[in-house]
Simulated scan of single mutants.
Amino acid sequence: MSGKSKVLIFVDDDVQPVAEALAPTNFDLDTRKLADGSHSLKIVSKDPSGKEGVRVIPFTVRNGPAIAIEGIKENDVVEGVLPLMINAYGKGDQKSFLISGSETPQSIPSWVWIIIILFTGWALYYVIRYLDAP
């Protein structure tokens, strides 16, 4: 043997490695071939003496369109009719970014409306006082 550790790279529970090389090595994991969701990368190394080391790295793939939803959150308790706003948009590819549809519209939170109303009231109060001054 060459005196270097051998590295085997597995994706999920596959018994066939996606790559086999001598350490150190560079490897490009193409996530486009994986379904969106949870996956794991398992790296098995074998040193020249035959000892084995294993490292498992969980990761999540999200190559499909991003989905944003407003009006319900995970594990909410709901009743009646729910108005939902749903947006889905793709990211394009590595060379170009899709601007169209990539921003998710959201409703304005109630605390922002309260601040706007208070500021407007304060401004009107001072405008009226200024106009009434002798």
Rank of each mutant, 00 (worst) to 15 (best):
residue 28 D to S: 07
residue 19 A to C: 03
residue 108 I to E: 02
residue 108 I to N: 04
residue 100 S to P: 04
residue 116 I to Q: 04
residue 73 K to I: 14
residue 98 L to F: 13
residue 66 A to Q: 13
residue 114 I to H: 10
residue 47 D to E: 03
residue 44 V to W: 08
residue 126 Y to E: 10
residue 131 L to A: 15
residue 4 K to P: 06
residue 72 I to T: 09
residue 124 L to R: 09
residue 64 G to F: 07
residue 53 G to Y: 11
residue 62 R to K: 07
residue 103 E to L: 03
residue 4 K to Y: 05
residue 103 E to T: 04
residue 113 W to K: 15
residue 47 D to Y: 11
residue 9 I to H: 00
residue 118 L to A: 10
residue 118 L to I: 08
residue 33 K to E: 14
residue 123 A to G: 13
residue 115 I to E: 05
residue 95 K to G: 06
residue 85 M to D: 15
residue 81 V to H: 09
residue 78 V to E: 15
residue 100 S to N: 05
residue 15 V to W: 02
residue 35 A to H: 02
residue 134 P to S: 07
residue 67 I to T: 14
residue 62 R to T: 10
residue 51 K to T: 15
residue 83 P to N: 08
residue 37 G to V: 07
residue 131 L to E: 12
residue 59 F to R: 12
residue 45 S to C: 09
residue 90 G to V: 09
residue 25 T to I: 02
residue 113 W to D: 14
residue 76 D to H: 06
residue 33 K to G: 15
residue 14 D to G: 09
residue 128 I to E: 07
residue 118 L to D: 04
residue 40 S to P: 00
residue 79 E to F: 12
residue 89 Y to E: 02
residue 119 F to R: 00
residue 80 G to V: 04
residue 131 L to P: 01
residue 113 W to I: 10
residue 89 Y to D: 03
residue 86 I to C: 14
residue 126 Y to Q: 11
residue 74 E to R: 11
residue 127 V to R: 13
residue 128 I to K: 11
residue 62 R to C: 06
residue 73 K to F: 09
residue 96 S to P: 00
residue 74 E to P: 08
residue 115 I to V: 07
residue 26 N to A: 11
residue 121 G to M: 02
residue 105 P to R: 10
residue 109 P to V: 02
residue 69 I to Q: 06
residue 80 G to W: 08
residue 74 E to D: 12
residue 17 P to R: 05
residue 73 K to R: 15
residue 77 V to N: 15
residue 21 A to Q: 01
residue 48 P to W: 11
residue 119 F to G: 02
residue 18 V to I: 10
residue 121 G to D: 04
residue 88 A to Y: 06
residue 96 S to R: 06
residue 117 I to K: 09
residue 130 Y to V: 07
residue 134 P to M: 15
residue 54 V to I: 09
residue 20 E to Y: 07
residue 131 L to T: 14
residue 57 I to N: 14
residue 123 A to R: 09
residue 113 W to G: 12
residue 122 W to G: 07
residue 43 I to P: 03
residue 124 L to C: 13
residue 109 P to T: 02
